[in-house]
């Protein structure tokens, strides 16, 4: 077993995702402490230039038309083969739509422990210690593993991406397993319809969570948004319930926004949501639960009934 760190890069729609650089940046730090190297593995098609942009020691790049888009089984099998070949001390994946398919599978297949929801990771006296946010961000769990090889999935946005950017030339590799005849096949990519508005380009957003209770609450928020010159956005439960279209969803499975104002009504601040909005310039959160994790992220907060505040705001505007 080496002290190397294998980082699985990921890309979406032809662009390497920030999470990849975030992982590499952190991996550099850990590798230094462990006395190992950072090996990036990128699977793609025509991504040579972008794949050369990591601050890694080695960047393995597998090019195949079949890998132009994510394919679950291809990733699982290629990663398993390379993990076997390189015996890394640590395998890093994003806690993303890709990492969530692969990490736990790999853990069972290879007998390596796995730790998910990781938002901090460090080396303590040769042991790798992680911090995970569990229970929707309400708890932070510190874990260690006695095994000599570990798989972690890191929360997007937990680390700086810039530290992972560099210029390591790619090292093309051949497919370690046959990529034909897989049982999972990519057949198409659907980008969100532009919808009525594009929330990613808005300067001001009023975001509503489960706490709005229903269509009436959304209507009130919409009225408030109009008065503020803003647009209504939402967390996942609201779009799942059909109270707002999917195009308004902010967060892990929605859109990432960086508005000047993000006014949150009844959103507790689960990590999945924070991922999509934490870079907003001004975050104001109204939530009746004083312990809501959002108050650790927002710039201003108030433990108030969201309807009361929304109505008071409307009146004052």
């Amino acid at each position: 077993m080496s002290n190397d760190i294998l980082v699985i890069a990921e890309h979406l729609d032809g662009r390497i995702a920030d999470i990849s650089f975030e992982m590499v940046g952190k991996a550099r730090e850990l590798a230094a402490a462990l006395g190992g190297q950072v090996i990036v593995l990128a699977l793609g098609s025509g991504l040579q230039a972008q794949a050369g942009g990591f601050a890694s020691h080695t960047t393995l790049y597998l090019d195949d038309p079949l890998l132009a888009h994510y394919n679950p089984q291809a990733y699982q099998q290629v990663i398993a083969a390379l993990a076997a070949a390189h015996s890394p001390r640590l395998i890093m994946l994003g806690y993303t739509s890709i990492g969530m398919d692969v990490a736990a599978w790999l853990s069972v297949k290879t007998g390596r422990p796995c730790i998910a929801y990781v938002n901090d990771i460090a080396v303590e006296q040769d042991a790798i210690v992680t911090r995970s946010q569990l229970y929707g961000g309400k708890m932070s769990a510190e874990s260690a593993t006695r095994a000599d090889s570990l798989i972690v999935t890191l929360m997007a946005g937990a680390f700086a991406a810039d530290a992972g950017r560099g210029a390591t030339p790619i090292q093309p590799i051949a497919a370690p397993v046959p990529l034909a005849g897989l049982r999972t096949r990519f057949t198409g990519l659907l980008k969100p319809e532009a919808g009525d508005v594009d929330i990613t380009t808005q300067e001001k957003l009023v975001a509503v969570g489960r706490g709005v209770g229903g269509e009436d609450g959304v209507a009130l928020a919409t009225e408030l948004a109009e008065a503020l010159g803003a647009v209504v956005a939402a967390s996942r439960p609201v779009t799942d319930a059909g109270w707002l279209p999917k195009t308004r969803q902010v967060g892990k499975s929605g859109l990432t926004v960086r508005p000047k104002l993000y006014l949150m009504l009844g959103i507790s601040g689960a990590p999945e949501h924070l991922e999509g909005m934490k870079d907003a310039e001004l975050i104001i959160a109204i939530n009746s639960d004083e312990n809501a994790p959002i108050f650790n992220v927002a710039h201003y907060g108030a433990t108030q009934d969201l309807f009361e505040v929304a109505e008071a705001l409307l009146e004052a505007l």
Binding site: L12, P72, S97, I98, T184, L189, K246, S253, G254
Partner: peptide, 18 residues
């Protein structure tokens, strides 16, 4: 339908059983 960040959705076919 498999979801990715940004509301992007991939259509993926998987052979049964899965």
């Amino acid at each position: 339908h498999k979801e990715f960040a940004g509301g992007v959705v991939a259509d993926i076919e998987v052979d049964l059983p899965c």
